[in-house]
């Protein structure tokens, strides 16, 4: 079994009110030296069966049509091997 991670971020030119709120809070909380914050979403998809090209194409489709709003967001897809469950 494998895990596919889809990261969705607002496009760089798009205003990110949440990221800005975090960024404004940082100095107030004593964390200096951070000039910008952008906030995104991470989806972890547990895939049944092999993660082959067909599976990735399917995930690309679902990310493009459902997970991300491609008018204002970009997304990236990467495969993450899942270690066997350890007791």
């Amino acid at each position: 079994m494998a895990r596919v991670v889809v990261d969705v971020m607002l496009k760089p030119e798009i205003l990110d009110p949440q990221g800005q709120a975090v960024q404004r809070a940082l100095p107030r909380l004593g964390f200096d030296g951070i000039s910008d914050v952008r906030q995104g979403k991470r989806f972890e998809l547990e895939v049944d069966g092999p993660v082959d090209e067909a599976a990735l194409a399917r995930i690309h489709d679902l990310a493009e049509s459902f997970l991300a709003n491609t008018v204002i967001e970009d997304f990236t897809i990467r495969v993450e091997e899942v270690a066997e469950a350890v007791k």
Partner: peptide, 15 residues
């Protein structure tokens, strides 16, 4: 320059 700027604006009601 980035050749394409989005035509979409995102609002922030709290602002």
């Amino acid at each position: 320059k980035p050749s394409k700027r989005p035509a979409v604006q995102v609002g922030d009601p709290f602002q």
